[in-house]
Design a protein around this nucleic acid. Structure first.
Lengths: 223, 223
DNA sequence: GTCTATATGACGATAGAC
DNA sequence: GTCTATCGTCATATAGAC
């Protein structure tokens, strides 16, 4: 049993070191770009020699894989407070505004992760299924929410939920892509593209929401 | 005069070599990603030694700069047939559909260039003003077209043309970003995101077009 | 188990012979 | 203009001290 606690301590210490390595790696990616990450630079900042890093990660690709999984878990956590079954009285507009804002905020505040996750800028690197799993979960959750809103009558019934979801991901990824490529230093609040979200949600809802029953706020294109 | 023609020939020969180098570089970027470009690989494919390339480009960044300018000129050329002042009877919807399709098609058919131009995946590289000029011209042209359509009465007058242009670039870059990141091997015609263009144009026009005068096809949100 | 020391080969880049 | 030789740095890998 003593050996067990010793193992635990060793294991915990190892995990702490791994987290430290990943933290430094994220900082370097944020400064020099995702492809600008180098083993030597990580070791330099940690005050160790490059070969020591191979104790924790068998290769640079394995390091990228851990970063990918960490990033996917992070964005999943950033979106978890408002996901799964959207609260009952929540309108499509409110759901899109909240989930869109949360995702876009995370993306511009974690540019290194979002580039690694959504742009694939590392030549030979493909994430492992394990690292990819949280990312898949994110997409599925979002798609399930839109489908639920459609069953609830908040979304036009003459279009596939998958199509609505696809178009929504295009809008959101367009905002992120434009903001990060053209003005990466602007904050979420003051970003010239992030501020377009409300306008885009209005446009999207106008096109895809089921028109309200109590009058004619909108009537083209449905049915 | 003889020396002049000799110089011309030398100069032409040099330009041909430069174009050859750039062609090979684009092919490598398409295979291994923009950051996967290497001087050694270019030399290998051209059957020369790496140092010989420094006769034509003083550094790898200068090579990227030439590639950036070449890409910007290429996309500008791909869009030039339908630009500047949009033809008189052309509706907003038709203009967006055509210019959007042309840009998206170029982007998915030239993924290496579009990543270099719009994603900035090379750590220390920033394009020179000369290389950047054609890209600026592209944006200005598009913005001018939207402003012209607004003056002509095809676009709502209660919003800034710059806002309309910003939202349009978000849609288009969203399509490109999603298509290249998730399914880069799909063609423009069969792409699961490129095919969303018509639907997105419809959504966009519904929100931003000035409603037709002859009836009530649409009436919400337009002053 | 974790580190230092050291080796290999590829890279971007420069100097200088031809 | 093209080459050889060379430099410093990188990712990667192995050997061996503690």
């Amino acid at each position: 049993m003593i050996s067990s606690t010793a193992q635990d301590r060793r294991h915990r210490r190892r995990q702490e070191t791994i987290e430290e390595v990943l933290d430094v790696a994220v900082a370097i990616m944020a400064e020099h770009g995702v492809a600008g990450l180098s083993i030597g630079e990580i070791a330099r900042r940690l005050g160790i020699r490059p070969p020591s890093l191979y104790v924790y990660f068998p290769s640079k690709h394995a390091l990228y894989d851990a970063l990918f999984e960490r990033g996917a878990r992070s964005v999943l956590a950033a979106l978890s407070p408002l996901q799964e079954p959207p609260p009952d009285g929540l309108s499509l507009e409110e759901y899109l505004r909240r989930s869109g804002a949360a995702f876009i905020r995370w993306s511009v505040e974690n540019p290194a992760y979002s580039q690694l996750l959504f742009w694939r800028p590392v030549p030979g690197f493909t994430p492992s299924p394990a690292a990819y799993a949280p990312a898949t979960q994110l997409v599925e959750r979002n798609q399930a929410c839109i489908a639920a809103l459609q069953r609830r009558g908040a979304v036009r019934s003459d279009v596939d939920a998958a199509t609505v979801h696809r178009d929504w991901t295009i809008l959101v990824s367009g905002v992120v892509s434009q903001q990060l490529a053209n003005a990466p230093s602007e904050s979420f609040e003051e970003g010239r593209f992030t501020r377009a979200l409300d306008s885009l949600v209005a446009m999207f809802v106008r096109h895809y929401a089921r028109p309200a029953a109590h009058g004619g706020t909108d009537r083209a294109h449905d049915r």
